[in-house]
């Protein structure tokens, strides 16, 4: 592969979030959140609905600008960078509600992942001559041999994305992110809405990406089975704050986490909430968040 040296970007990166606070008007979405994703590991960001996971993701990928705190990429402060600059550094992400280009084929969608690292200018493109053609052919070979084969989507490469099943679309989105040769891969609910088989496939691909490409992965996910199976490190958010972090089994055993998900551990208190007797029901809390 030639591109890694071209871009100067290679290997997994360390992502660090430091004291991040974000509020929309009076609503505090995130307050002083800190955590890190270590190079070449899988970090999962979990938490109940409205805990601030997607806001966190949008801060990391540059759509929201936090009022306080910093996002560091290999020690470099990227908090104020725009998404295209982050892409050039090696950020890649997928979206919770698939954000593929529906009018294009799978192949073209994946090729777009390399956009920021390609050099063809307008004149060369109009003539499709010399360097432009060579660059396109190198891209095609890379996409075919490194990504399409890897993710087992050979059979659909020429199909328009709109015609694919949900699970396959998610996989194409992962393929597009991989085409960016990411140094950190942000996955926003990679298996949401998938059946068991599709979930297992996706989990396998994510593990393969980590092992074969050595990419740092940060994901938001609701499927606890998968999170506990493949993550190296789990960070739990609730009401915009980190309430626990550590190895999967540590987090699972943490009483704060159980409380965040299920409410208080006391059965009597739980029953009381179910009947809506408590002043602070789980439902109300979610609405606040």
């Amino acid at each position: 592969m030639t591109g890694q040296s071209e871009t100067g970007a290679s290997g997994a990166a360390r992502l660090e979030v430091e004291g991040l606070s974000l509020s929309f008007g009076g609503l505090k979405a995130l307050s002083t959140v800190s955590f890190a994703a270590e190079p070449g590991s899988i970090t999962a960001l979990i938490g109940p609905n409205g805990a601030g996971k997607t806001s966190m993701f949008n801060c990391i990928s540059g759509f929201y600008h936090p009022q306080q705190g910093a996002v560091r990429f290999d020690g470099r402060d990227v908090t104020r960078m725009h998404p295209p600059e982050r892409a050039a550094l090696g950020f890649a992400r997928t979206f919770q509600n698939i954000a593929l280009f529906r009018g294009m084929t799978v192949l073209d969608n994946i090729k777009l992942g390399r956009h920021a690292h390609m050099k063809t200018n307008l004149l060369q493109a109009l003539a499709y001559w010399g360097p432009a053609q060579r660059e396109e052919m190198a891209l095609r070979a890379e996409v075919e041999e490194r990504i399409i084969d890897f993710l087992e989507i050979n059979h659909i490469r020429n199909m328009p994305v709109a015609a694919l099943s949900y699970g396959l679309q998610k996989r194409v989105e992962l393929a597009r992110a991989l085409a960016m040769r990411p140094r950190i891969l942000l996955l926003d609910e990679p298996v949401a809405g998938m059946n068991r088989e599709e979930t297992e496939d996706m989990a396998r691909f994510i593990l393969d990406v980590k092992e074969e490409w050595g990419t740092t992965i940060l994901m938001v996910e609701h499927d606890m089975g998968m999170v506990m199976d493949i993550s190296d490190h789990v960070v739990v958010l609730n009401f915009g704050q980190v309430i626990a972090s550590g190895l999967p089994h540590e987090v699972q055993a943490d009483p704060h986490v159980t409380e965040a998900y299920l409410g208080s551990g006391d059965p009597a208190a739980l029953m009381a909430r179910l009947r809506g007797e408590g002043p602070d029901t789980g439902r109300n809390r979610e609405e606040v968040a």
Partner: peptide
């Protein structure tokens, strides 16, 4: 939006 994430200005 996703064009921007891919580094397209």
């Amino acid at each position: 939006i996703s064009a921007e994430v891919l580094g397209i200005s």
